[in-house]
Amino acid sequence: MFTYKHFKPILMNSHIVKVLQAVYITHDVKRFRVEKPIGFDFVPGQATEVSINLPLWTNQLRPFTFTCLRQQDYLEFMIKIYRDHEGVTNMLGKTNAGAELILHDVFGAIQYKGPGVFIAGGAGITPFISIFRDLYHKNQIEGNSLIYSNKTSEDVIMQDELQKMLKDRFIKLFTRENVLGFRGKRIDRSFLIDNISDFGQHFYVCGPTEFVKSITKDLMDLGAALDVIVIEM
């Protein structure tokens, strides 16, 4: 049973916001659009810690990336829901419009530094979505490409919009199925050699920890300098 002793006050630099929309956009990724506090801002690629404004959940903070444009009048997150344990995302899977979330500090290492190759694994695409949307809105997306790896075609987040923005500079790979027109393989050293001609450009890498570590090592082995690789794990 919840009692007052379980409650901790919400931090002063936090914002309670109402959920405006909550819909599944893949079988396990849910898009949340929430109120935008006055003066709230972020750099495309950044994230905030989010908690649910319910007893026992207010201090369960998890990091999620903004996927909207800065100038929009709402904030948006695309969150992978893990139903196999009673954690925050499982609870968010049950959270719908009208509920309240708590936003905390803005942070994040992924920020756009210039044209290059974006390499994402699974939900690691989320910081790139805001960056691509921002560049596309400014008509500055030219010169950027995306290599996006998922287990299956059903796991791809925002496929149609990414295709529209990047056109033939959008490469999809699937590790657990072979789909006509796509590539059923992993991103490894051989793949990077076959698909990248310039290792002096910027590289942006985001995904599971081992995914990021492996690709970063391969990029550096192939001549990419550490200062041109932007990573988030």
Results as ranks from 00 to 15, higher is better:
Phe2Lys: 08
Thr3Pro: 00
Thr3Phe: 14
Lys5Met: 13
Phe7Lys: 01
Pro9Leu: 08
Ser14Lys: 05
Ile16Gly: 00
Tyr24Asn: 07
Ile25Asp: 02
Val34Met: 07
Lys36Asp: 04
Gly39Ser: 09
Phe40Pro: 01
Pro44Ser: 11
Gly45Ile: 06
Ile52His: 05
Asn53Asp: 12
Phe66Ser: 01
Asp73Val: 01
Tyr74Val: 10
Phe77Pro: 01
Ile79Glu: 02
Ile79Met: 04
Lys80Thr: 08
His85Lys: 06
His85Trp: 14
Asn90Lys: 07
Lys94Phe: 09
Lys94Trp: 05
Thr95Pro: 03
Asn96Tyr: 08
Asn96Met: 10
His104Val: 06
Ile110Cys: 02
Tyr112Val: 06
Tyr112Thr: 04
Val117Ser: 07
Ala123Tyr: 04
Gly124Lys: 01
Pro127Phe: 02
Ile129Pro: 00
Ile131Met: 08
Arg133Ser: 11
Lys138His: 14
Gly143His: 11
Leu146Arg: 03
Lys151Val: 08
Thr152Phe: 15
Ile157Tyr: 00
Leu162Lys: 14
Gln163Glu: 15
Gln163Lys: 06
Phe174Lys: 00
Thr175Tyr: 10
Val179Ala: 07
Val179Phe: 11
Phe182Lys: 03
Ser190Met: 02
Ile193His: 00
Asp194Ile: 01
Phe199Glu: 07
Gly200Pro: 01
His202Leu: 03
Cys206Gly: 10
Pro208Thr: 12
Lys213His: 12
Ile215Cys: 02
Leu219Thr: 10
Leu219Gln: 07
Asp221Tyr: 05
Ala224Cys: 08
Ala224Arg: 04
Ala225Val: 09
Asp227Phe: 14
Asp227His: 14
Ile231Lys: 06
